[in-house]
Design a protein around this nucleic acid. Structure first.
Lengths: 292, 292
DNA sequence: GATCTGTCTATTGTCGATAAAAGACAAAAG
DNA sequence: CTTTTGTCTTTTATCGACAATAGACAGATC
């Protein structure tokens, strides 16, 4: 096969969600905008909806015939893009499996193991290399540098530089900047999770990313914002991997975030720096604990 | 063709250089180590040397038959790796040509223009994207963000953070660390260029990279060191592109470097910070001038 | 006259194939 | 017994091909 049709399948599933709530669908361009895809793919979806008897489609008339059922959806395994599949598969290997630093990475072997072509693996490795976990020997193999203590220390060192600066810059965002509203929204979610911490503590991971990305964006510096990708991926997989004391750790981090948010609102540089340092320090400790 | 044989051609040329100075060649593994290539390629080179009558080769006996002449060398255009060719070609387009920010980048068009396959172009663009000058729209084209004033400001902001920290860390390198020797060597080259500034001022570019990379390495942080690639490529092409007042600018930068080096040797943090800031400030101004 | 649809073209993402280059191993030479 | 060479296998770098997706344009519809 030449190209996966995961864009189609994923958009189709999201379209079914829309279908559950309306009696008819909007125009093709509008639907395309809503789903974030081109009109070509919209039409492929509409054709399929008609085939399975979900929709009566004739030009502008797009009438829903029945509510979609579970069997109408494509299975979730089929909606992930290839790069997501490779990333997960690769991260599992290097985090969970006995992957020693210094180990060689074999493109062909990886490709065969995942069941895909070598080109996709190569492109993934090139993109992934900016995370500093692997390194290429030209005309030869990749070397795994590993998720080591040094890696974590180097990562957090840069993170702390960038986040302190971003937090300081946050103060200078104009009153009407959307970041302040987003900050309110994020704070509300913090309270909601804390109120029901026992059952919702796992929602923290996503919220954490959302909050810190907001802060980093205040730097208005593409290198700072891009670097947050490195942090995000490390913490993302770290949370999935290490769940010891997750409830306590997350509760504590939520409280620290709230202090941090309140400091940002105060616009007092000293308070901001203090709250930021406090939180970054415990984030670093958490990360280091999982490595030793 | 499947793979360029630029490794062979480049190593062959370097081998001819060796040949000019000796009467016989060492063992295959030794030669491979000297040229930085595998034994397979060494043997390809030896075969070729024999074919063109430069060498009598029988097992361990490798006797030089005549001195190589200019015609024995492969032309330099053929020894550049594909990625170097793409990089130059691409940089010329976006720096010299009328490349407006926001412009779309077409993989197929680029590939055809350079006369290579799309895979190589794609891989180049992915690698290049970490420099923050282009951005990908998934399933669609790349967008040129351009070598703008904002880009230069964001780049120098991070550079200043990283370099100040690295310079401060330099002090803590142990007395016997090789960086101190390298610093001496670099200083000597500074004096040599300054003594003959009229004819050698263009040598500054390479020296500049060597010096700042040495400083960044003192951070012992892979993200800081890797970021220096971004700075290096920008300044590299910037020097090639903008040569107005190059002599004066470079002379001034050389003096600043010498003050900076002497501050590093003094191990006095305040002096170091001052010299570093001073130099970074004028480096930034130089860069900004070339953009407006 | 603005927006939508039908149709067609262009570009991207992925694959398998192939030459160049790396690398493994045993026999030969010192 | 260490190093070198001869031979063979494996892996990487690059290409062209093709389905999925994006995008362009003219005629149809409101």
């Amino acid at each position: 096969m030449a190209k996966q049709n995961t864009v189609f399948k994923d958009a189709f599933n999201r379209c079914l969600k829309l279908l559950e709530q309306t009696a008819s669908l909007p125009s093709e361009p509008e639907l395309g905008a809503a789903l974030g895809i081109s009109r070509t793919t919209v039409r492929t979806i509409l054709t399929r909806l008609e085939e399975v008897g979900l929709l009566a489609w004739e030009k502008r008339r797009k009438i829903v015939l029945r509510k979609p059922v579970a069997a109408d959806y494509f299975p979730t395994e089929e909606t992930d893009s290839l790069s997501e599949i490779i990333e997960r598969s690769f991260m599992r290997r290097i985090l969970a499996g006995g992957a020693e630093p210094g180990m060689q990475i074999n493109e062909l072997e990886l490709a065969r193991e995942i069941g895909i072509g070598t080109t996709s693996v190569r492109e993934f490795l090139i993109r992934f290399s900016r995370f500093g976990l692997i390194e290429k020997r030209p005309n030869s193999h990749w070397v795994l540098k590993g998720f080591t203590r040094d890696f974590a220390l180097e990562l957090t060192e840069v993170r702390e530089m960038f986040e302190l600066r971003s937090a300081a810059a946050f103060v200078h965002l104009p009153e009407e900047h959307s970041a302040w509203q987003e900050l309110d929204a994020i704070e509300a979610v913090h309270h909601a999770i804390l109120a029901d911490i026992e059952s919702r503590y796992l929602d923290f991971s996503e919220l954490d990313e959302r909050f810190h990305l907001l802060v980093h964006r205040a730097s208005k510096n593409r290198f700072v914002v891009d670097f947050y990708d490195v942090i995000a991926i490390v913490f993302h997989y770290h949370y999935q991997w290490n769940k010891t004391n997750a409830r306590e750790r997350n509760a504590r981090a939520l409280e620290e975030h709230l202090a941090y948010i309140s400091a940002l609102r105060s616009r007092d540089p000293a308070r901001i720096e203090h709250a930021c340092r406090q939180h970054l320090k415990s984030a670093r400790e958490t990360l280091l604990q999982s490595i030793n």
